[in-house]
């Protein structure tokens, strides 16, 4: 379980996160939604220790982030995280060098699934393929949690379909996933849990199926209620 408690983050005087708390469970897909602002990405970075926080705590299975938890959580940002001059093969080699839990079989499987050639250079990848490679780098580590920052933004429809397919496949297994997005449509049926963020606070946290069953509301319905009023 990833526990975020009272997370507060300031950029200068501006509070980007002001006491954000939520949990994300293993085996669930948790979606951080915010229609504007930088809170979502910052939250993921904070979980990964890529940005210092002003207050609060973040625990991954009860541990604060440390070198061992980097074998437990993978972060897939929306930018290239490998050197552009590397080939995909070299990038995978790099990962294999440093991660004990790197699973080369799965990496190869994903490569075939995404129909990518390992000789391609990172710099030559399209936006969609970059996202796939990022996903591959995360999924091929036997991590328990995967954090994805806007996996669908700005990429072509077929890449989206492929990525969506990954989400429903055995590749996710029983891992916990946190996705950030500002656009819910494509993945509404994929997610277990929604956390609505705005102005640095959690406006609402709910389980999607429960919401449908008990209140008959879609995620967008709830968003409309919460954000527009």
């Amino acid at each position: 379980m990833i526990e975020v408690n009272q997370l507060t983050k300031k950029f200068g005087r501006k509070k980007v996160l002001d006491g954000v708390s939520f949990t994300a469970n293993k085996g669930e897909i948790t979606c951080l939604i915010g229609i504007n602002g930088v809170g979502k990405t910052t939250t993921l970075k904070a979980i990964m220790g890529l940005t210092p926080i002003n207050k609060g705590s973040i625990l991954i299975d009860g541990e604060t982030i440390n070198k061992n938890t980097y074998e437990k959580v993978a972060f897939i940002p929306d930018a290239i995280t490998m050197l552009p001059q590397m080939t995909i093969k070299q990038a995978m080699q790099f990962m294999q060098d440093f991660y004990k839990k790197w699973n080369q079989e799965r990496a190869t499987e994903l490569l075939t699934f995404f129909k990518l050639d390992e000789k391609t250079r990172i710099s030559e990848l399209s936006k969609g393929n970059t996202a796939k490679i990022n996903l591959l780098m995360g999924l091929a580590i036997d991590v328990d949690y995967i954090l994805m920052d806007e996996p669908f933004s700005g990429i072509d429809i077929f890449s989206r379909e492929q990525i969506t397919e990954v989400f429903t496949s055995h590749l996710i297994e029983d891992r916990g996933v946190i996705i950030t997005t500002h656009e819910i449509n494509d993945i509404e049926h994929l997610i277990d849990k929604v956390i609505l963020l705005d102005n640095g606070i959690v406006l609402k946290e709910f389980n999607t199926e429960q919401m449908r069953q008990e209140e008959g509301k879609s995620v967008v319905d709830v968003m409309r209620e919460v954000y527009i009023g």
């Binding site: 990964m48 220790g49 070198k67 980097y70 290239i80 995280t81 790099f94 440093f98």
Partner: peptide, 17 residues
């Protein structure tokens, strides 16, 4: 530098920074 933030990768390596 640039949009390729290799720093992400390096800082997330499972090793003491």
């Amino acid at each position: 530098f640039g949009k390729n933030t290799f720093a992400y990768r390096l800082l997330m390596l499972p090793t003491a920074r």
